[in-house]
């Protein structure tokens, strides 16, 4: 309960801070409207009042990349900001655990990703003739969250480098690049040389997308999902504990070096 209360406190804090950047909010809204307008007019000829899952897939791809990039980058970014600003030590002095501070810093980004996904799906329903119901939205969000957990593990590994060494966030860049490359979003995986195609099969982004695509089909069979869910589960079991262990190690190293804060 204490964790949820603190998570909520972080969320409210970050939302209040976001609201002070009015121009930034305006730019984000304009960006979203621009994106939808471009997609709508470029696909208008093809739509013609027909249900076409490809348009939903387009937005699901966007949502998946959003979840992935956020999960990979948010922890290291928030830790770095808090360390530089000096708020990190102040938060730890409230008897709030290091991990509560780290995970709660994901609050706003997490809510933003979910809100955007809902927004994408509503747009799909209103403008792209998709037969999405509330249950679909729920199931899509659960799937995206589940499939972003391996990236949270990777994000924690990245944050551990920042906590301990203050630099070295290169993992975010390369992992994001590789994940997008082997996702099948921009080109089909089977157009790659055969030996590279297997990377796609274990890529959490591609696995997540496949899972979500199956889920939004009307008559999906759970057995079809099983291999994808298993791959993701294995990746969660692999990356999340490694992330937590490394982050804990980085935290202890920073305490030893006396640089939990650095200006």
């Amino acid at each position: 309960m204490s964790f949820l209360n603190k998570f909520y406190a972080f969320l409210i804090r970050d939302l209040k801070i976001s609201l002070t950047y009015k121009f930034n909010l305006l730019i984000q809204v304009i960006g979203l409207i621009f994106l939808f307008t471009v997609v709508f007019f470029s696909l208008k000829e093809d739509i013609q009042g027909q249900v076409n899952l490809n348009y939903i897939y387009f937005f699901l791809n966007l949502a998946s990349i959003d979840f992935m990039l956020s999960a990979i980058s948010v922890f290291s970014r928030e830790v770095r900001t808090a360390q530089i600003a000096g708020t990190f030590e102040a938060m730890l002095l409230t008897n709030t655990s290091f991990f509560t501070v780290i995970f709660s810093s994901y609050a706003r980004t997490f809510v933003r990703c979910i809100t955007r996904t809902i927004f994408y799906l509503i747009v799909c329903k209103l403008f792209f003739y998709s037969e999405i119901v509330l249950f679909d939205m729920l199931i899509v969000i659960v799937s995206l969250v589940y499939n972003s957990i391996p990236f949270i593990g990777i994000g924690l590994i990245s944050a551990s480098f920042i906590v301990a060494f203050k630099v070295g966030d290169v993992s975010t860049f390369f992992i994001a690049l590789l994940a997008i490359f082997f996702s099948g979003i921009f080109f089909p995986i089977n157009s790659l040389p055969y030996f590279l195609q297997s990377f796609g099969d274990i890529n959490p982004l591609k696995v997540g997308l496949e899972t979500t695509k199956i889920l939004i089909q009307d008559n999906f069979v759970f057995l079809d999902l099983f291999p994808y869910l298993t791959v993701t589960l294995i990746e969660i079991i692999l990356f999340l504990p490694i992330g937590i262990i490394l982050l804990n190690y980085g935290f202890r190293l920073a305490k030893k070096n006396g640089n939990l804060s650095f200006y």
């Binding site: 406190a9 804090r13 409230t94």
Partner: peptide, 24 residues
Amino acid sequence: SNSRSFFWRLSGRDNLIFYGKLLN
């Protein structure tokens, strides 16, 4: 004497509320 341990874009009250919540 480190004023940077506060969130400068929030008000003083909001800062105190945030830290109060962290103190449970």
